[in-house]
Amino acid sequence: MVGERMNKIDRRRPESEADATVNAARLGTRLRLARQTRGMTLKTLATAAHCSESLLSKIENGKASPSLPMLHRLVEVLETNIGWMFEQVDDDEAIVFRAGARPLISLDALRRGEGISLERIIPYSPGHLLQCNIHHIEADGESEGPIQHVGEEVGYVLAGRIKLIVDGKSHDLATGDAFVFRSELPHHYRNIGKERASIFWVNTPATF
Rank of each mutant, 00 (worst) to 15 (best):
R182M: 09
E153H: 07
L158N: 04
E152F: 11
L158Y: 01
K163T: 15
R161E: 15
V166A: 05
S170K: 12
I162E: 08
L164V: 07
P186I: 06
I147P: 10
I147F: 08
H171R: 11
L158V: 12
Y156S: 13
G160I: 00
S170D: 15
H187F: 04
P186R: 09
F179E: 10
T175L: 07
H187K: 08
K163N: 13
D177A: 10
V150E: 11
H149Q: 12
Y189Q: 07
D167Q: 04
G176Q: 04
L173V: 05
A174L: 02
P186G: 11
L158S: 07
H187Q: 10
L158K: 02
Q148R: 14
E152L: 13
F181Q: 02
Y156G: 05
L185T: 05
S183L: 05
G168S: 13
E152G: 10
K163P: 00
Y189F: 15
E153W: 03
V157R: 02
L185V: 02
H149E: 12
K169Q: 14
G176T: 04
I165R: 14
E152T: 14
H187I: 08
E184V: 13
T175K: 11
I162V: 15
A178W: 00
D172P: 01
I147T: 15
G160W: 00
G168M: 12
F179S: 11
H187P: 12
